[in-house]
Amino acid sequence: MTIDITVTINGRLYRASVEPRLLLSDFLRDTLGLTGTHVGCEHGVCGACTVIIDGDSVRSCLTLAVRADGATITTVEGLGTPEQLNALQHQFRECHGLQCGFCTPGMLMTGMDLLKKYPLATDDQIREGLSGNLCRCTGYQNIVAAIRAAAALRNETTP
């Protein structure tokens, strides 16, 4: 049995017929080829698969693709490009906020959500906001620095 869904991803409309059990993470990666979203645990702990659905950060490994019917989704492919990184991606590069890059898409999507919703006035607030995303390479220090820098830029441009 399959179910027809319509999803807008990174500004493009996709129609697909999917099994009810198909995970959104597998739909993005295997069906659509959007492999920028990574799967690190498949039980909602590591946060690598985080995407933005209708304005909120969500674990795509805990979401069924059919639940995304009618939704608007942003994945890491919907941020900047290699030639034109977006502000947060640029700060990740400037601050060395990534090493192996595997957790990075989830960190970026969570970071985008945090920047949109929270003041992020202190490092403690940033660390709390990131506590649902695991990184094994960086010790988090430079990820925190990247988000701190992006928050400062945000505050300059939107007083």
Binding site: L34, T35, G36, T37, T75, V76, E77, L79, G80, T81, P82, E83, L85, Q89, F92, R93, L98, G101, T104, P105, L108
Partner: peptide, 8 residues
């Protein structure tokens, strides 16, 4: 970084 930051 540019490729790893953009899903490439």
């Amino acid at each position: 970084d540019p490729r790893l930051l953009t899903g490439n």
